[in-house]
Amino acid sequence: MYFDSYGKDDERPAVVLLHGLSFDRRQWEPVLDELAIIDPDRRVVAFDLPGHGKSPARDSYQLDEVAAVVHQAVTAAGLDAPIVAGHSLGGALATVYAARYPARGVINIDQPLLVGGFRDVLRGAASVLRSPGYGQVWDGMLAGMGIERLPVDAQELVRAAGTPPQELLLGYWDEIMTMSAEEFTRRRTHDMATLRMKGIAYHYVGGNDLEPRYRNWLKWVLPEVTVTVLPGGGHFPHLAHPAELAKILAG
């Protein structure tokens, strides 16, 4: 996996950054610019996930398998038990990673861990997703992410990613589309129970208030969870409030 490295090693755990589906490590630039102001020596490594940016594609994008690839890359980068921060898909991946490999903390940026209605949306659009017109499904999802609320430069950063390859969407969404909601919930509940047992700090950063049912589940599986809402940026609170997110990364 390709990565950019910043800062230098000190007594604090390094921070690993995992972007969302269709994006790459460059989406962290506004946050990293702010971090360079308040904590220029903070050790941070921003990765391109498999199939994104300069990282090679895979035949399968199951979360467990991608987490194993990330662990290999983290180890190759010389990092030991990092804080793993991820946006969207990266937030789910950060959670799975920390449940299976050494980690000191998780920062999940706007990625609910239960499928909710998203699974039904994907299943309903399955035929279109597998057709040449698959991009319209992605465009429809982007339209609901609140991109228009972001600063102009952040909007350009998001839109510059374009439409991801079809195999990337089908690969990373395969588990959601094929696994039962009950099994999906069981796996994520087990992950969070593992984090609690390991004493790993978990910080959820959302762009909107959590839906009450989900908040109750989150507090039930991990009572020590920290929840921060950075409003006004829709699905991209780290781009709407890069200075605030930089403070969270700085610890």
Rank of each mutant, 00 (worst) to 15 (best):
R43T: 10
A76H: 07
P40F: 08
I176G: 02
E175A: 15
S22H: 00
A125E: 15
A46S: 14
D10P: 09
W217Q: 14
L195C: 11
I109Q: 10
E175S: 14
K247E: 15
V229H: 09
L93R: 01
V96W: 02
V31P: 10
E156L: 13
P165R: 09
V96S: 02
R43L: 08
I176C: 10
S60K: 13
Y6H: 13
A73M: 08
V16D: 13
E156K: 14
V128M: 10
A125C: 08
L239R: 03
L170E: 05
S55V: 00
H241P: 04
A99F: 07
D110P: 06
L170G: 00
G206M: 10
T95F: 02
A68T: 11
L32P: 12
G51W: 00
R186P: 03
L170I: 05
T75D: 14
L93S: 03
D209C: 00
W138G: 03
E29I: 06
E11Y: 08
G207L: 09
G124P: 06
I107T: 03
P165S: 05
A68M: 07
G135R: 10
N208S: 15
R42K: 13
E34G: 08
M1V: 11
R58C: 11
L230M: 06
G91L: 12
T228F: 00
V221W: 07
G124L: 05
T163Q: 10
L79A: 06
L245T: 12
L157H: 03
V66A: 01
E183F: 02
A181I: 00
H87W: 12
R213V: 14
P237L: 03
Q72W: 02
L113R: 01
P56A: 14
A57P: 10
I38F: 02
R43G: 09
L169H: 07
A240T: 02
L17K: 08
Y134L: 03
F236R: 00
A126T: 11
V221D: 11
V137N: 10
F23P: 01
V69H: 00
G135W: 10
D120V: 07
D39Y: 09
L32V: 09
M145A: 05
L245G: 06
V121N: 05
A160G: 13
D139I: 13
L195G: 12
R130I: 03
Y204G: 04
L49W: 07
P237H: 03
I147E: 02
L21N: 04
T75S: 15
F23A: 11
L49F: 07
A181W: 01
G90P: 02
F23T: 05
A85C: 15
A103F: 07
A57H: 15
A77Q: 12
V205D: 01
G162S: 02
I109R: 09
Q136S: 15
E182T: 14
V31W: 03
Y6C: 04
L195P: 10
A68Y: 00
A243V: 05
D64L: 11
G117C: 02
S5H: 09
L113S: 01
S60G: 07
F184Y: 15
E211K: 11
E29H: 13
G20E: 13
A160W: 13
A250D: 12
D64K: 12
